[in-house]
Amino acid sequence: AEIMKKTDFDKVASEYTKIGTISTTGEMSPLDAREDLIKKADEKGADVVVLTSGQTENKIHGTADIYKKK
């Protein structure tokens, strides 16, 4: 799966169907969080990951919607 910015995804959204939401939390780098989200998306058969939230304090927390091409 590839990560797309919401603004970029909005241009092609009609080509995809939302298949779920994924999240990651833990003591990790932003890059590790990104890789974890991609891994989870791949496991669910998603083609595209669109980040919906991200937070960093002591731990990273990120959520994303996942989509499959129609």
Rank of each mutant, 00 (worst) to 15 (best):
A1R: 02
E2D: 06
E2L: 15
E2K: 15
E2C: 15
E2Y: 14
E2H: 14
E2P: 03
E2W: 08
E2T: 15
I3P: 03
M4Q: 02
M4W: 11
M4H: 01
M4Y: 05
M4K: 03
M4E: 02
K5Y: 14
K5N: 14
K5H: 12
K5F: 14
K5A: 12
K5D: 15
K6F: 07
K6L: 07
K6T: 06
T7N: 09
D8V: 05
D8M: 05
D8G: 01
D8T: 04
D8K: 04
D8I: 04
F9Y: 02
F9C: 02
F9L: 03
F9E: 02
F9G: 00
F9N: 00
F9A: 01
K11C: 09
K11F: 05
V12S: 03
V12I: 11
V12C: 07
V12Y: 05
V12N: 03
V12G: 01
A13F: 06
A13P: 01
A13I: 07
A13T: 04
S14L: 08
S14M: 09
S14N: 11
S14Q: 08
E15Q: 14
E15K: 12
Y16C: 01
Y16M: 00
Y16K: 01
Y16N: 00
T17A: 06
T17H: 10
T17M: 11
I19T: 03
I19L: 08
G20V: 02
G20E: 03
G20R: 02
G20P: 01
T21S: 11
T21E: 09
T21W: 07
T21G: 03
T21F: 07
T21Y: 05
I22D: 01
I22C: 03
I22E: 01
I22S: 02
I22A: 02
I22Q: 01
S23F: 12
S23T: 11
S23N: 08
T24L: 11
T24E: 03
T24G: 04
T24D: 03
T24V: 11
T25V: 11
G26P: 09
G26F: 14
G26L: 11
E27K: 12
E27H: 12
E27D: 12
M28W: 05
M28I: 06
S29E: 08
S29Q: 06
S29T: 09
S29D: 10
S29K: 08
S29H: 08
S29M: 07
S29L: 08
P30E: 14
P30Y: 14
P30D: 14
P30Q: 09
P30C: 15
P30G: 11
L31N: 12
L31F: 10
L31Y: 10
L31P: 08
L31E: 15
L31H: 12
D32T: 09
D32G: 08
D32R: 10
D32M: 12
D32V: 08
D32L: 14
A33K: 05
A33Q: 09
R34M: 14
R34G: 04
E35L: 14
E35P: 03
D36H: 10
D36K: 06
D36E: 14
L37A: 02
L37H: 00
L37M: 06
L37T: 02
I38L: 14
I38M: 08
I38Q: 06
K39P: 02
K39Y: 05
K39H: 07
K39S: 07
K39E: 04
K39V: 05
K40E: 04
K40W: 06
K40T: 05
K40M: 09
K40C: 06
K40S: 05
A41V: 01
A41H: 00
D42V: 14
D42N: 15
E43V: 06
E43K: 08
E43M: 10
E43Y: 07
K44R: 14
K44S: 07
K44D: 03
K44G: 04
G45N: 07
G45S: 05
G45A: 04
G45T: 04
G45L: 04
G45Q: 05
G45F: 06
G45I: 02
A46V: 02
A46K: 00
A46S: 03
D47K: 03
D47T: 07
D47N: 07
V48D: 00
V48I: 10
V48W: 01
V49N: 02
V49G: 02
V50K: 00
V50T: 02
V50C: 03
V50R: 01
L51T: 03
L51P: 04
L51K: 00
L51V: 07
L51S: 02
T52N: 11
T52I: 10
T52C: 12
T52R: 15
S53K: 08
G54M: 15
G54Y: 15
G54N: 12
Q55I: 14
Q55D: 14
Q55L: 13
Q55R: 08
T56L: 12
T56D: 14
T56Q: 09
T56Y: 10
T56A: 11
T56C: 14
T56M: 12
E57M: 12
E57S: 10
N58M: 11
N58R: 07
N58Y: 10
N58Q: 09
K59F: 15
K59R: 10
K59I: 13
K59E: 14
I60V: 12
I60H: 10
I60A: 12
I60P: 09
H61A: 11
H61Q: 10
H61N: 11
H61P: 09
H61L: 13
G62F: 15
G62S: 13
G62R: 15
G62H: 15
G62V: 15
T63L: 08
T63W: 07
T63D: 08
T63Q: 10
T63R: 08
A64G: 04
A64D: 02
A64L: 05
A64K: 02
A64Y: 15
D65C: 10
D65Y: 06
D65E: 09
D65T: 07
I66R: 02
I66N: 00
I66E: 02
Y67E: 01
Y67S: 00
Y67L: 01
Y67H: 03
K68G: 02
K69D: 02
K69C: 08
K69H: 10
K69V: 04
K69F: 06
K69T: 03
K70W: 05
